[in-house]
Design a protein around this nucleic acid. Structure first.
Lengths: 103, 103
DNA sequence: TTGATGTTTCTAGATATAGCGATATAATGA
DNA sequence: TCATTATATCGCTATATCTAGAAACATCAA
């Protein structure tokens, strides 16, 4: 399990698009269309669906997701041709606790 | 009481110097020298003391403090020739609660 | 193998932030 | 009033981030 870093998390979430991606992933079935392969809640949401939601280019969306992942806030899973992203709830919980103690 | 904004707080705290200023202000008497006028805990810490702690220029320090204040994370009080900054504990608490609910 | 599709990485220009010195403002005291 | 000290703001350069398009890579199906 990754050790959470407050500063890196703040940097990643200081961008409105990245913040809203993480928030939308709280209730994936409410913000993203169902997928033929892979359940949005269990497996995560594919990059294409997330891109449609944010309205930026595919490459930018991919870069943002990679950044959220480096910060430990999401995980990715490759299945066939798709990459599915979902929240890393354990790390997010850890972050909030850390903030309560150290912020 | 200011309505806390998650994004603005993240932006302000995504900078290592600003983050550490806020953290040092948790225990002012441990991180800053006593002041002739104004108690570091009750009234806050003057800009000059904070500047010495961070090791950046006076102008940069002042700008950073203004940014933390705009984000609602600190308050300032002018007393004589000095401006004293302290944490806005109520807002910080509100922010952490907001993160627990909305992040 | 070839082509189609989803994703990632590379490159580059536009915009934003970092951080300094100089200047302006405010308060104090001689 | 004038000089001094503390802080804030302005103007600037350097660096970082934003974001797109192009190219590369991966997977699958024909």
């Amino acid at each position: 399990m990754m050790r959470m870093n407050i500063l890196e998390a703040f940097k990643a979430l200081g961008n409105p698009t990245r913040l809203s991606i993480l928030q939308n992933l709280r209730e994936p079935e409410k913000h993203f269309p169902p997928q033929d392969e892979g359940d949005v809640t269990i497996d995560g949401v594919c990059v294409g669906s997330i891109q449609e939601g944010v309205g930026l280019s595919q490459s930018t969306t991919s870069t943002y997701l990679a950044s959220l992942q480096r910060a430990g806030l999401v995980t990715s899973k490759r299945m066939g041709g798709w990459t599915y992203y979902k929240r890393n709830e354990a790390n997010i919980k850890k972050l909030i606790e850390l903030l309560g103690r150290e912020l």
